[in-house]
Simulated assay, not measured.
Amino acid sequence: MTSHGPFPRHLPDSTADPEAIARNDWEAFAEIEYLRDHWSVKQWSPGRTGYYWYLTFDDPDLVGFAAERRRGLGLTGLDAVPPDGLHITIRGVGDTTAVPDEHVDALVSSARERLSDVKPFDLTIGPLAGSRSAIRFSVAPWDPLLDVHRVLSACSGEVSPDPAARDVPGSPSRFRPHLGIAYNNTDRAAAAVIAAVAAQRTPERISVRVDTVELVVLRREGRCYRWDTRAAIALGG
């Protein structure tokens, strides 16, 4: 995330319609004039680890789809998300040094109870688009993702006595679901990248099932994000 606020800036006309979501993502990406170096924009101090709520994906069809689209770009200056690194970020919780273990345990317990009322759902992944510093897929529909986000935000509010600790990036008004496949690693004009992404916007989509939400301990290894799972919570209890 950059200091310029959420991307796209505006919400799609519909958070249920895949075409409206894809159109909104693409129109915002196509208007970018310059791409930023993700690793400079997204500051991450050495040794830092943080708690995040993730949806993670290892579906072979999705892994292959992402790899094919990334290869098709034919671009330098991109750091690929590894095959076992595909994810959708739902919400940050806080640095591991700032969130006591007892709060983490309480958060997981609250989330397990609340997510038992959320049924598993399917997502459509694609087409390809991008942001100010990454290449990513549109995902749809947003509605179940927004529901999960609201539940997890409520859990944080319930557990943390410190309002500042609850005020992390990812409020409902800022949440823009997406699935990244590569990070831009140099500041550059955007036109050639946008053209390459446009050529990979095929009609093909991949459907994936979401039945688990994970609380992960996220770290940065070089120009890559890696994580360990702290808790995996099944939807629908």
Results as ranks from 00 to 15, higher is better:
A66S: 06
I181G: 00
L115M: 07
H38P: 02
K42E: 12
A182C: 00
D84G: 10
R188H: 08
S14T: 08
K119V: 14
P82V: 01
A106P: 10
G85M: 00
W26P: 00
G236Q: 03
S207P: 12
R150N: 13
A189S: 10
R9N: 08
Y54T: 06
V93N: 07
G77A: 01
I181S: 03
D122R: 14
A28W: 01
W44L: 04
T229C: 09
L128Q: 01
W142R: 08
D143K: 12
G180D: 09
M1D: 12
P144K: 04
L146G: 10
A190V: 04
R230M: 13
P169W: 11
R174W: 14
A196C: 01
A67N: 06
D162T: 10
G180T: 13
A190C: 05
P46E: 09
W142M: 07
A189V: 13
E33K: 15
T76S: 15
I90N: 06
R114G: 12
P163M: 09
S160A: 14
R9H: 11
D211R: 11
G74I: 00
R230A: 14
T186Y: 14
W44C: 04
L146W: 11
P82S: 02
G77L: 01
R48H: 11
S131A: 12
F57D: 00
T56A: 07
R69N: 09
I181L: 09
A111E: 06
F65R: 01
P46M: 09
E102H: 13
R48M: 14
D13C: 13
W44M: 02
W39L: 06
P83L: 05
V104N: 09
R223F: 09
S40D: 09
E113H: 11
V104D: 05
E33D: 15
P163Y: 04
A66F: 06
S110W: 07
W44E: 07
A196K: 02
